[in-house]
Simulated assay, not measured.
Amino acid sequence: MRESVEVSGLVLRPWGAEGDVGAVLEAFAEPLMRWQAPQPVDSVEDARQWVRARGAQWEEGGAFSFAVVDGRGGDGAVLGNVTVSAVDRRHSTGWVSYWITRAARGRGVAIHSCRAAARWAFDDLGLFRLELGHRVNNPASCRVATAAGFAAEGIQRQKLLYDGVRYDVESHARLATDPEPTAP
């Protein structure tokens, strides 16, 4: 199983490099990012634990998180994260999630990362179906999902709860047999 993937000037690699803790702390300082972690990431120690947890999940084989890094070799600036989680080997399914730093948004980073992670999950993990979901009030995430080849499948009413507010979620899926999406 490959542990890194190169695509469109980006490298997807496991979390754990020297600068990852600072990059995670900086990314989670943005208010909207608070929803992207199970616990707040407010300190260097929180960020260190977040990075360690990604490594432990990888070792356990249930979730595979990639730092999305600018440039060849995997030592450029961290631009985001893409994860294949909830891996169910019996049914060959997984769940894709991602976040992109404010500085990297609008450059196609999320689209390329999701496409590369999906191809990796199909080829390296042998998965057949990948799912993802986004709040219906997040049209940018919908554009990413669609451009990454994930077909919309329906609305899950009031699935997510953030700060006491319930949000509907649009579900998407991509199958290993689906055609590769065209360039964004």
Rank of each mutant, 00 (worst) to 15 (best):
G22P: 00
A23F: 04
V24H: 07
L25W: 06
L25K: 08
L25I: 10
E26L: 08
E26C: 00
A29N: 05
L32E: 14
M33F: 00
M33D: 02
Q36H: 14
A37I: 04
P38T: 14
Q39T: 15
V41H: 04
V44W: 07
E45W: 05
D46C: 11
A47D: 01
W50G: 03
V51K: 03
V51L: 06
R52T: 10
Q57G: 12
W58R: 13
W58H: 05
W58C: 10
E59H: 00
E60R: 09
E60N: 12
G61N: 12
A63F: 09
F64M: 11
F64P: 01
S65T: 13
F66D: 09
A67W: 14
V68F: 10
V69I: 13
V69M: 12
G71F: 13
G71K: 09
G73E: 10
G74R: 09
D75S: 08
D75C: 03
G76V: 09
A77M: 08
A77R: 15
G80N: 13
V82P: 06
V82F: 06
S85Q: 10
S85M: 12
A86P: 00
A86E: 14
V87P: 05
D88Y: 13
D88F: 02
R89P: 06
R89F: 01
R89I: 01
R90H: 04
T93L: 02
T93C: 04
V96K: 02
V96W: 03
W99R: 06
I100G: 04
A103V: 10
A104L: 07
R105F: 02
G106E: 08
G108D: 15
G108R: 09
V109I: 11
A110I: 10
I111P: 13
I111D: 03
H112C: 10
S113R: 10
C114A: 15
C114Y: 03
A116W: 09
A118N: 02
A118K: 07
R119H: 14
W120H: 13
W120M: 05
F122L: 02
D123F: 10
D123M: 03
D123E: 14
R129E: 07
G133H: 12
H134C: 15
V136I: 15
N137R: 08
P139R: 02
A140Q: 08
S141K: 00
S141D: 11
C142L: 07
A145R: 00
A147S: 15
A148L: 07
F150G: 00
A152W: 00
E153S: 13
G154A: 06
